[in-house]
Design a protein around this nucleic acid. Structure first.
Length: 938
RNA sequence: ACCCGGGUGGUGGAACUGGUAGACACGCAGGACUUAAAAUCCUGUGAUCAGCAAUGGUCGUGUGGGUUCAACUCCCAUCCCGGGUACCA
C-alpha cells in the first residue's frame, strides 16, 4: 500500500471533527495547560506562509502536552474589527460584516487543512456583539475607575468622590488640582465631572492626536511610523480633538515591574522597557528676573545645576508669550511661524538642524543667583517632562551644540573631563565650580542636590515616563461603539444591562463632518432621549486586550468569564506570536489584566507566563554581499545572509589572509578561471564614499511569479500533504528565527514520511502502469533487540527534550535519524514502532493516527500516553572515549564508566597509538573527564 | 547615535552547562533498478596536500588577540548583518 496522504488526511480530519475530540472541557480534575496563538486579522488575502509557522509550533506543543496528560486549552479566533475591512468596504461597497465573515470562513478552511487541534466551539470574533458586549463592559469599568497611588491599584471612582468630599484634592497630590472639601461640594455637576475625568482610567479629553487626513482617522503612536501611517504610508499631522484615552501611564511602574515575573525574551522585555521609558530625576523651579512667573524644568542630572548656562522651552510652552521682551517679539514670532510651518515629518527628518530663539528674559539660578538666558527651541518637546529644560552644555551634547551655534558662553563644572570640543555626559567626574557640590563625584552629588532642592522648597524628586496615555478612539465605523451618551457636556455611561450597544448598520462608510466618524451620519442613532451618542469607535487593540480570557468561558452570558473558570485556566502558559506587537497589544493586554486583577475579577496579574516570538518568514534576498572593499584592502568578509549564495568562492579564507587584492578586473579573472563558479550571475559594483561593495545579483527571471505561486501554504499542502508541510515548516530552523522562505527542502521531509510508511508496508513490488499491487503490511510482533530499544529510547529522550524547549527543528532531525536507523536494522516491530508513532503524533498527526490504527489500535492516538524513556537502554557500562594529546584528538579507547583515574592512566599508558603520538616526551598529566574525554598533556 | 540579537560547508541549519565541529536535510557528483522517465536504493561530498589504495598530514566556526590541557562556546578589541528606539533633558 502506498502512502496516500490525501486520503489519510481527509479521513482523519473528518473523523476528528465529527467525534469532537478537540473539544475542551472545563473539568478541573486534570492539570491545565493553556497554549495560545496571537489571533489573526482575517484579511482577504487568506493565509500566507508566515501565518502557519507559529500555529504549527503551538499545535505541536499543545498536542504534546495533551499526550503528557494535561487538559489543554488551545483555541483560535479572529481579530475581526479593523481598518482594512473598512477600507475594502469603501472601495467595493460591500459591508465589512460580510467580507469579514467570508474571510473568516476562508481562513478556517485553510487552517483545518493543516490539521490543527483548535477547539472551534470556543471560537471568538471581536466583532461579534456577544464578544464586544464585554469589551464595552470592561471599558465602562475603566471609565468608572481611577488609580489610587496610595493603594497602588485601581478603585471605583466612588472612593475618589468620597476622598474629595472629605479632604478635597489636598491629600492626593496626583494631579494639578487643588481644592478643599468645601470647594468640591460647591462645584456644579459639570465641574465635578470635569475634575473626575482627569482621574478616570478611560477618559476623554482634548489632546493633540495623530490625525491622518487620507484615512480620515486618528492613529495611535505605534500606528505612526516615521511621521506617516503604518498602514498605507499616508502623512500624519497633529490636531487637537476630543478623544478617548486609557490612562496606561498609571500602570507604568507595574508594567515595568511585572516584566521581572514573566518569561519573555530579553529583547522583548527591553523593547517594553524602552517604550515605558522610566527616568528618575527632579522637577525644579527657576524664578525669572523682573517677573513674578517661574519656570519648572525637569532634569535627570540635578548634580549639574551649577553648569546651567541657559534654559530652553518648547515653542508650544504656555509661558512663552509672557516671557518675550518687546525687542524679541518680532524674531520670536518669526520663529514660531517657522516652527508651525514644519510638519512632524520634517522635524523628524532634520533632527540635526539647530534652531532656536532668545526670549529676552532671564531666569535666576537659585543656588548662585546667576542670570541665565531663556530660549525657545524645537529640540525641546512640549510633551515630555515639563516642556522646559535646564541646559548644561558641558554635559549634554545637544545643549553643547546649541550653545556653540548661538555663541552662548559655556561653564565648565568638570575641569579636565571637559575638553571644550564636545560634551561629556559622564557621572564619574569630580565637580568643580559647583558651590556646595564642589569636590563630589557626580553620581553621588545627584542625591545631595535633590535633597537641597527639596529642602529649599523649589522642587521635588520626580519619576518620568516616556510612555503616553493610549489614544482609545478612532473616527471609524468598523469597531466597537462606545457605550457613552453625551448629555450637556457630560459623558454618561450606559447601563450595563443595555449592553451590547450594537454597531448600527450603515450604507456609507465615509467620514462624518469635522473629522467625526461615519456613525455621526446616522442621525436617528446618534440622538437619544438623554443626549447624543459618542460617534467614534474603539481601536483595534480593544478586543485583543482581553480576548484570551473569553476563550476560557466563551458562552457566558452573565460575565466576561466566570471567576472559577479563569482561576482554573489561569495565565496563558505559552503565547506565540510575532515581535511586532511588542509595544502595542502586549502592553495593553497586560494593563487590562492588571486592571481586572485590581478589582478581583481574575486572580493573576500577568496574562502571559511565557512568550515565544516566532520569526518572520521573509522573502528571498536577491543580493549576496560578497565583500567589502576599502581602497585596495578587504575590510571584512561576510558570509552571512547568503541564502542565495549561488557563488562558490573557493578561496574565501585565503582571500583574506593572503591580502589578496580584489578589483573588478581580478574578480572578473576569478570568474573566468572558474574560481568563482556559475558566472551566470551578474556582478554589481557599488560605491559608497571610498568604500566599494561587491554584489552578485541573481538574474531576475529566476524569481518569476509562477514560482511564488507554488510557495503558498495551500498549494504545498495539496502537493505534499499537511504532515509534510507541518514538519517542513518546523525543519526550516528555530521557530524564533527569521528565515527566508524556500521550498527546496520539502522533498526531504516528504521522503522521511514515506520511509516511515515503509516500515509498516512493503512496497518493493508496487505499482506498475498506475496500478497498485503488492504492498503488504510487514509490521510484526517480534521482540525488539537491545539496539532497537536503544534507538527508540534515545529518540524518546531527544524528542521530549527538544519539544519541551521549542526546538522543533532538531526534534524533526531526531525522527529522521531514528527512521533511517530502523530501516537499516530492518526493524518492523510493533513494540518499537508504536511508541515512535505516539512521539510523532504532535508533529505529523494524520500519518501517526493512520498507522496507529493499522497496527491494531481502535482508540485515537490523541488519547495515547507519551512514552517514557527508560534509562536502562540509554546508559552504557562502557563508552568509547575520545583520547587527545595536548587537546588534539588522536584516537579512541573503550573505557568502563566505573574506571578510576588510576585505571584510566594505566590504560592510556599501555596504548600503542598514544605512545606513537607522545613520541617519548614526558607526560605531565592525564585528564579524564567522565562521560566526555581523555586528554594527555605532554 | 544608543540598546538588544546574530555571523559555522554550495544552501537551510546541528553541536544542551568549554571536551571527536559540520548532526539532519537540500543541492551536487557517481552508481544500481528501468526500454525510458518517475519513484526508490547505495556511495561520496569543509578546504587543501601526499598516496594506486586503505589511510594520513595541514588549515578551518567574520577578523585580530587573550584565558585554558582543550574555545563555535569564556574574556578584550574590531568589522559586518538583522531588529528595536530615536532630539525624552
Amino acid at each position: 500500500m502506498e502512502y496516500n496522504f490525501r486520503e489519510i488526511e481527509k479521513k482523519w480530519q473528518q473523523t476528528w471533527k465529527e467525534s469532537g475530540i478537540y473539544q475542551v472541557s472545563n473539568s478541573f480534575e486534570k492539570p491545565k495547560y493553556y497554549v495560545l496563538d496571537m489571533f489573526p486579522y482575517p484579511s482577504g488575502a487568506g493565509l500566507h506562509v508566515g501565518h502557519p509557522l507559529g500555529y504549527i509550533a503551538s499545535d505541536i506543543y499543545a498536542r504534546y502536552k495533551r499526550l503528557k496528560g494535561y487538559n489543554i486549552l488551545h483555541p483560535m479566533g479572529f481579530d475581526s474589527f479593523g481598518l482594512p475591512a473598512e477600507q475594502y468596504a469603501i472601495e467595493t461597497g460591500q459591508h465589512p460584516a460580510t467580507t469579514t465573515e467570508n474571510n473568516i470562513a476562508n481562513f478556517k478552511s485553510q487552517l483545518d487543512k493543516i490539521g490543527f487541534c483548535f477547539d472551534w466551539s470556543r471560537e471568538i470574533k471581536t466583532s461579534d456583539p456577544e464578544f464586544y458586549r464585554w469589551t464595552q463592559w470592561i471599558f465602562l469599568k475603566l471609565f468608572k475607575s481611577w488609580y489610587n497611588n496610595e493603594n497602588n491599584k485601581a478603585e471605583p471612582i466612588e472612593t475618589l468622590i468620597k476622598e474629595f468630599a472629605g479632604n478635597g484634592a489636598q491629600r492626593l497630590q496626583q494631579s494639578d488640582h487643588s481644592f478643599s472639601a468645601d470647594e468640591w461640594k460647591s462645584f456644579d455637576e459639570e465641574k465635578k465631572h470635569e475634575i473626575l475625568m482627569d482621574f478616570r482610567l478611560a477618559f476623554s479629553s482634548y489632546g493633540e492626536v495623530n490625525w491622518c487626513e487620507a484615512l480620515g482617522t486618528v492613529l495611535a503612536n505605534d500606528e505612526v511610523v516615521n511621521g506617516v501611517s503604518e498602514r498605507g504610508g499616508f502623512p500624519v499631522e497633529k490636531k487637537k480633538m476630543r478623544q478617548w484615552y486609557l490612562r496606561i501611564t498609571d500602570y507604568a511602574e507595574r508594567l515595568l515591574k511585572g516584566l521581572e515575573t514573566v518569561d519573555f525574551s530579553d529583547a522583548m522585555k527591553e523593547m517594553q522597557r524602552n517604550w515605558i521609558g522610566r527616568s528618575e530625576g527632579a522637577e525644579m523651579r527657576f524664578s525669572i528676573l523682573n517677573n513674578p512667573l517661574s519656570i519648572e524644568v525637569y532634569t535627570t542630572r540635578p548634580d549639574t545645576i551649577f553648569g546651567v548656562d541657559f534654559l530652553v522651552l518648547a515653542p508650544e510652552h504656555e509661558l512663552v508669550n509672557q516671557l518675550i521682551t518687546e525687542e524679541q517679539r518680532q524674531p520670536i514670532n518669526e520663529y514660531l511661524t517657522y516652527v508651525k510651518s514644519r510638519s512632524d515629518r520634517e522635524r523628524l527628518a532634520e533632527v540635526k538642524q539647530i534652531t532656536g530663539c532668545f526670549t529676552g528674559s532671564y531666569a535666576i539660578n537659585p543656588f548662585d543667583g546667576k542670570q541665565i538666558p531663556i530660549w525657545i527651541a524645537e529640540y525641546v518637546l512640549a510633551g515630555y517632562g515639563t516642556g522646559a529644560i535646564m541646559a548644561v552644555p558641558c554635559g549634554d551634547q545637544r545643549d553643547f551644540d546649541f550653545a556653540i551655534h548661538f555663541n552662548i558662553p559655556i561653564t565648565n563644572i568638570i575641569g579636565k573631563d571637559f575638553n571644550g570640543n564636545e560634551a561629556n555626559p559622564t557621572k564619574e567626574a569630580i565637580l568643580e565650580n559647583s558651590g556646595f557640590l564642589n569636590g563630589m563625584l557626580m553620581k553621588n552629588a545627584i542625591g545631595v542636590a535633590v535633597n537641597k532642592i527639596e529642602e529649599l522648597g523649589i522642587g521635588k524628586r520626580k519619576v518620568n515616563y516616556r510612555m503616553r496615555d493610549a489614544g482609545f478612539s478612532r473616527q471609524r465605523y468598523w469597531g466597537e461603539p462606545f457605550p457613552i451618551i453625551w448629555s450637556e457636556g457630560i459623558a454618561v455611561p450606559m447601563d450595563e444591562k443595555e449592553l451590547p450597544l450594537e454597531l448600527p448598520f450603515v450604507e456609507k462608510y465615509g467620514p462624518g463632518k469635522n473629522g467625526e466618524g461615519p456613525l455621526s451620519n446616522l442621525v436617528d442613532w446618534v440622538n437619544t432621549s438623554s443626549g447624543k451618542r459618542e460617534t467614534s469607535t474603539m481601536p483595534g487593540y480593544a478586543g485583543s486586550s482581553w480576548y484570551f480570557l473569553r476563550y476560557m468561558d466563551p458562552h457566558n452570558n452573565d460575565t466576561f468569564a466566570d471567576k472559577k473558570i479563569t482561576d482554573y485556566w489561569n495565565q496563558v502558559d505559552v503565547y506565540i506570536g510575532g515581535t511586532e506587537h511588542a509595544v502595542g497589544h502586549l502592553l495593553y493586554s497586560r494593563m487590562w489584566t492588571k486592571f481586572l486583577y485590581d478589582f478581583g475579577l481574575i486572580s493573576f496579574e500577568e496574562p502571559f507566563k511565557k512568550l515565544v516570538n516566532q520569526g518572520m518568514i521573509t522573502g528571498k534576498s536577491y543580493f549576496f554581499m560578497l565583500n567589502r572593499i576599502h581602497g585596495d584592502k578587504i575590510v571584512s568578509y561576510n558570509s552571512q545572509n547568503t541564502s542565495n549564495a549561488f557563488v562558490r568562492l573557493k578561496y574565501a579564507h585565503q582571500f583574506i589572509s593572503n591580502d589578496f587584492k580584489l578589483t573588478k578586473k581580478t574578480l572578473d579573472d576569478q570568474v573566468e578561471k572558474g574560481i568563482v563558479e556559475r558566472p551566470s550571475y551578474e556582478i554589481v559594483w557599488e560605491k559608497d564614499g571610498d568604500e566599494e561593495f561587491v554584489f552578485l545579483k541573481e538574474e531576475s527571471e529566476k524569481m518569476s511569479k509562477s514560482k511564488f505561486n507554488v510557495d503558498n501554504p495551500n498549494d504545498l499542502v495539496d502537493k505534499y500533504g499537511a504532515d509534510t508541510f507541518r514538519m517542513y515548516e518546523m525543519f526550516l530552523g528555530p521557530v524564533e528565527q527569521s528565515k527566508p522562505w524556500d521550498t527546496k527542502g520539502i522533498e526531504g521531509v516528504h521522503r522521511f514520511l514515506k520511509k516511515l510508511w515503509r516500515l509498516f508496508f512493503d512496497d518493493s513490488s508496487f505499482f506498475s502502469r498506475g496500478k497498485m499491487s503488492g504492498g503488504e503490511a510487514i509490521w510484526n510482533e517480534e521482540k525488539p533487540t537491545f539496539a532497537e530499544l536503544k534507538m527508540l529510547h534515545k529518540t524518546i529522550k531527544k524528542v521530549e527534550e527538544d519539544t519541551d524547549r521549542f526546538s522543533f527543528n532538531t526534534a524533526v532531525s531526531a525522527f529522521m535519524v531514528c527512521v533511517n536507523e530502523l530501516t537499516d536494522l530492518k526493524c518492523h516491530k510493533r513494540e518499537i514502532l508504536e511508541p515512535l508513532l505516539i512521539l510523532l503524533a504532535p508533529y505529523a498527526p494524520h500519518i501517526a493516527e493512520e498507522l496507529y490504527h493499522v497496527i491494531g489500535n481502535s482508540d485515537s492516538i490523541l488519547n495515547a500516553v507519551f512514552p517514557e524513556s527508560e534509562n536502562k537502554y540509554l546508559t552504557e557500562t562502557e563508552k568509547e572515549y575520545p583520547v587527545s594529546i595536548n587537546g588534539k584528538m588522536r584516537t579512541t579507547m573503550i573505557i568502563s564508566l566505573e574506571s578510576t583515574q588510576q585505571e584510566v592512566e594505566k590504560m592510556v599508558l599501555s596504548n600503542p597509538i598514544v605512545h606513537r603520538w607522545i613520541d617519548s616526551k614526558p607526560i605531565k598529566k592525564i585528564i579524564f573527564v567522565k562521560n566526555k574525554m581523555v586528554n594527555v598533556v605532554v
